[in-house]
């Protein structure tokens, strides 16, 4: 199936991670999303592309931002979007993930958007359903739409991804955002660094294709992009780092540390931010260099692109019935 405007059909049924996507596929997501950025800035934002399609946001872990972003993306494309907060419904009644998948599948959704606190859980669920599945974050594994929206943000500001030097700073150990971004940036030819105390880096992280730093001044030297990661509250007090005060002193982003980066380096954060822990307010709010709010804007566009890509080949033929 060829599409004259956007090239070959997307060859994956699901979007489970960045790992396994080619540079060309990533570019297509970004190209498509670029168009949606413009649409989203108009007063009339509604398209009919997903008319008649059902999208279920299935969140086994609380998230307001990502869920809202997907919900808006689905609605702007004309789809019917249902939000299920599974964290507070079936799982507490003892239903297994696979039972939940089967139940949802029986309702014939076209796309399931799934977030789950366990690594690999979204992939497991995807094996049990007939529709497309988008991973909205699984454990410490992947968060592909976050990496795509980060890439779109960078590309729109810098005009490219290849050749840029990107420092990812903070809790890489627990971060799915970091893993997806490392995979994407490496595929696109950027140079990736990670900067963190050793307690927040996973073993053999250099094998992911990154340079490892434990010092912000060295890690940020001459970088084009500074990506800060969120430090979860429960990890701040003595378990992985001694205190928020010490963490901010050595690893929190402020103008002092930012001086090492290129003068036009961009500041990014996937949100929600812990001001005064991993990032100081003055840099977070620097209108020239912080693109944190643009990231949120790009998020909706990227998710529209993902929904379009995964539903494009569904056609309008009869849906298969269970057991048929």
């Amino acid at each position: 199936m060829q599409d004259s405007v956007n090239g070959a059909a997307f060859r994956h049924r699901h979007l489970l991670g960045i790992e396994g996507l080619s540079a060309a596929e990533i570019e297509r997501f970004l190209d498509l999303a670029d168009g949606y950025v413009e649409l989203n800035r108009q007063a009339e934002k509604k398209r009919a592309l997903l008319r008649g399609r059902t999208i279920i946001n299935c969140f086994f872990e609380n998230s307001t931002r990502t869920r809202t972003s997907f919900e808006l993306a689905g609605k702007r494309l004309g789809g019917d979007v249902i939000n299920m907060a599974v964290a507070v419904s079936s799982m507490v009644k003892g239903e297994t993930l696979i039972d939940t998948a089967m139940t949802l599948n029986a309702m014939h959704p076209d796309v399931l958007v799934v977030r789950h606190p366990e690594s690999g859980a979204v992939q497991l669920l995807s094996q049990k359903v007939d529709c497309a599945v988008i991973n909205a974050g699984d454990g410490s594994h992947e968060h592909p739409t976050q990496a795509l929206l980060d890439a779109l943000t960078i590309r729109r500001r810098k005009g490219r991804l290849g050749g840029l030097v990107v420092a990812i700073c903070g809790d890489v150990l627990h971060s799915r955002v970091a893993r997806s971004n490392i995979a994407l940036l490496n595929t696109m030819g950027a140079r990736v660094r990670v900067v963190a105390p050793r307690t927040l880096l996973p073993a053999a992280v250099e094998r992911l294709g990154v340079e490892v730093f434990h010092d912000m001044a060295a890690g940020l030297a001459a970088v084009d992009i500074v990506m800060m990661l969120r430090l979860q509250m429960e990890r701040m007090h003595g378990s992985f780092v001694p205190s928020t005060r010490e963490y901010f002193h050595f690893f929190g982003l402020d103008y002092g540390k930012l001086r090492a980066a290129k003068p036009d380096a961009l500041i990014m954060h996937p949100g929600p931010m812990n001001r005064g822990v991993e990032i100081g307010s003055e840099v977070a709010d620097d209108i020239d260099r912080s693109v944190i709010r643009q990231q949120v804007e790009m998020g909706v566009a990227v998710r529209m692109a993902c929904l379009e890509m995964l539903t494009r080949d569904l056609g309008n033929g009869p849906q298969t019935w269970e057991g048929a």
């Binding site: 690594s119 410490s140 594994h141 996973p202 073993a203």
Partner: peptide
């Protein structure tokens, strides 16, 4: 603990 655990995002 090692590269595989790190790639899969599993506790090691």
């Amino acid at each position: 603990e090692g590269e595989i655990a790190t790639r899969l995002g599993l506790a090691a």
